[in-house]
């Protein structure tokens, strides 16, 4: 009998003692398992799908229509002509969909942890960073589906972007979705109970959304408050919105891309630390 650990004990079929337990196929299957589960849950939860769309549509049909007369917009890149306010806030509302979706994923992580189903994920034989990244990809996929449905409805409301823009925006949606999802993951590692989630709404989502270029351009904000415009400029959500805005018109905003990418890496790294049993918040909270 071999002296290798576990050699004479049960092993999954197709594996022999001494072989590495994990391989690329294992990672691939696990990632698709996580993404598939998230997508299935999303399509079967019709209320979630509808409410995710109703929010930005109300902003578009009601708020933007009312604001159109009050707010004059100068021609600023990427726009080459005067535009309606509805056109201006469309990228902001796309960002809003992804912001709320990121927070929704974070909420579901807290819920899963309270309900215990998070434990099943955490005790599977894969590194935690990979499991968190897979969760994040799953949430981002869901948010991209929502965005394209929203853009489809906006099309019928006469908000048109060049057709290439609908393709160019896809990779930027991926990055912005990952960044906002990673922020949600990071927050979920700090939130102990579901009840604390209301605080996230008040202290993260609303300030992030209103203190950004989603609803008003920076120059307009500067007219009323320089401080506010500075805060909006440094807000990663603003940069994600600008990245989407430019991509929708076939342009690449390098500054916004780098800013969003760096924000994603920082949020993701912090979330991984937050979920690490040796270093993070899990022990103090009760693990899992």
């Amino acid at each position: 009998m071999t002296n290798q650990p576990g050699a004479d004990l049960h092993l999954p079929e197709g594996r022999r003692a001494g072989q590495p337990c994990v391989n690329i196929l294992h990672y691939w299957r696990a990632m698709w398992g996580i993404i598939g589960r998230e997508l299935w849950r999303f399509v079967t939860q019709r209320e979630r799908f509808i409410s995710a769309l109703v929010r930005p549509l109300i902003w578009l049909f009601v708020f933007a229509a009312g604001f159109r007369a009050a707010l004059g917009l100068a021609i600023t890149p990427p726009y080459e002509t005067y535009i309606l306010y509805e056109v201006y806030i469309t990228p902001g509302l796309i960002g809003m969909i992804q912001l709320f979706n990121g927070m929704q994923s974070s909420l579901s992580m807290v819920y899963d942890r309270e309900m215990g189903s998070m434990k099943i994920l955490m005790v599977c034989p894969l590194p935690r960073w990979f499991l968190l990244l897979s969760k994040l990809l799953a949430g981002t996929g869901v948010s991209i589906l929502q965005v394209y449905v929203f853009l489809g409805i906006a099309w019928f409301y006469d908000i048109h972007a060049p057709w290439q823009g609908y393709l160019w925006v896809l990779p930027t949606l991926m990055l912005s979705g990952l960044m906002l999802g990673a922020l949600g993951l990071l927050l979920s590692s700090f939130i102990k109970q579901l009840e604390n989630f209301a605080g996230v709404m008040n202290f993260v989502i609303f300030p992030m959304f209103f203190m950004s270029t989603a609803l008003y351009p920076l120059w307009k904000m500067k007219e009323s408050s320089v401080l506010l415009s500075k805060l909006a400029e440094y807000n990663p959500f603003s940069q994600a919105v600008e990245l989407i805005r430019f991509a929708l018109y076939g342009q690449f905003n390098e500054h916004a891309f780098i800013y969003t990418l760096v924000a994603f890496l920082v949020f993701m790294a912090s979330a991984i630390v937050g979920y690490n049993p040796s270093k993070g918040m899990m022990v103090r909270k009760g693990g899992g």
Partner: peptide, 9 residues
């Protein structure tokens, strides 16, 4: 879902 997490085909 569980079999996927454990890498089973």
């Amino acid at each position: 879902y569980h079999t996927a997490l454990h890498g089973m085909g």
